[in-house]
């Protein structure tokens, strides 16, 4: 089983696709630690960590039908601190034209309750997912943002937003913070042709949407949000976090890639 893997396969009737996530805070590129930002309620803050799961990716055709990436190859943990994680590659996609994509922000309830044998790669609770898993209330953290703000009333002026909860299992029902993002390519069309010329979708992930939206989060009032009911408000906010930037072709060369991103010099 291949989970969370980045690999390029060659097949006759299929092609590959790359998706790049560019992290922003409002209109400014997200830079960890060193840059100060302001939220809608005027709190000043910096971000020390920003990461999230993307899963259950679908490609949408003009007629509304979809191609669903097979589940076992459709879990990705995107970390601002790890540049490689921000570009994912999907393989073995049937040739065709697509006008949009959708995905789940987090981990679906089936995988959240599946046996340990189905939790490999980025779902490995003793490996990649070690900081994205709640052990005492078994489940994954979907979106995690941490930083400091002078307005924070928590220890060391930290703020921590760890949002998870898949709805629970059996008679243990919890909030369901699973949200979906749908990205429309507008006038552009994604053409899956082969595995040599890999098209790349660039998606903007705007971390400010965690704080600003239907509910503007005041860091002083809610410096720490994890399993409580308020987490649903943050999930409602961040479901609008992803937007379409453009379609291009994967730049294989790492240096060129860095230049193309233009904002990653600070990061590993």
């Amino acid at each position: 089983m291949l989970l969370c893997a980045i690999s390029v396969a060659n097949a006759q009737k299929t092609g590959s696709l790359s998706i790049r996530f560019d992290h922003f805070l409002g209109n400014e590129p997200l830079i960890l630690n060193d840059k100060k930002y302001k939220n809608a309620t005027g709190d000043e803050f910096n971000v020390s960590l920003f990461q999230y799961f993307v899963s259950n990716i679908k490609l949408i055709r003009k007629d509304g039908s979809t191609y669903d990436i097979p589940q076992d190859k459709s879990y990705f943990l995107i970390r601002e601190s790890n540049k490689d994680s921000k570009t994912i590659t999907l393989t073995d996609i049937p040739k065709g034209k697509f006008t949009g994509t959708s995905f789940l922000i987090g981990i679906d309830s089936t995988r959240s309750t599946s046996e340990i044998g189905y939790r490999k790669g980025c779902l490995d609770v003793g490996g990649d997912a070690k900081d994205m898993y709640w052990a005492w209330n078994s489940g994954y953290i979907f979106v995690k943002m941490e930083g400091t703000s002078p307005q924070s009333t928590a220890k060391n002026n930290m703020f921590m937003y760890h949002i998870g909860l898949f709805g629970g299992i059996g008679n243990k029902k919890t909030l369901n913070n699973i949200r979906y993002a749908t990205i429309d390519f507008g006038k552009e069309t994604l053409r899956i042709k082969d595995s040599k010329n890999i098209p790349q979708i660039t998606i903007k992930a705007d971390a400010s949407k965690i704080l600003n939206g239907e509910t503007n989060i005041e860091i002083a009032k809610n410096p720490t949000v994890m399993g409580g009911p308020f987490s649903a408000k943050i999930a409602e906010n961040y479901k609008t976090m992803f937007s379409f930037v453009g379609l291009g072709t994967l730049v294989a060369n790492a240096d060129k890639d860095k230049n193309a991103l233009g904002m990653n010099q600070e990061q590993k």
């Binding site: 309750t113 046996e115 340990i116 609770v125 003793g126 898993y133 052990a135 005492w136 209330n137 078994s138 299992i169 059996g170 243990k172």
Partner: peptide, 18 residues
């Protein structure tokens, strides 16, 4: 089929992580 005083873990295999 649930583990711990609050039942936060649903599968014995995952309990030890807690």
């Amino acid at each position: 089929s649930s583990f711990g005083w609050d039942g936060g873990v649903h599968d014995l295999d995952f309990f030890a992580v807690s």
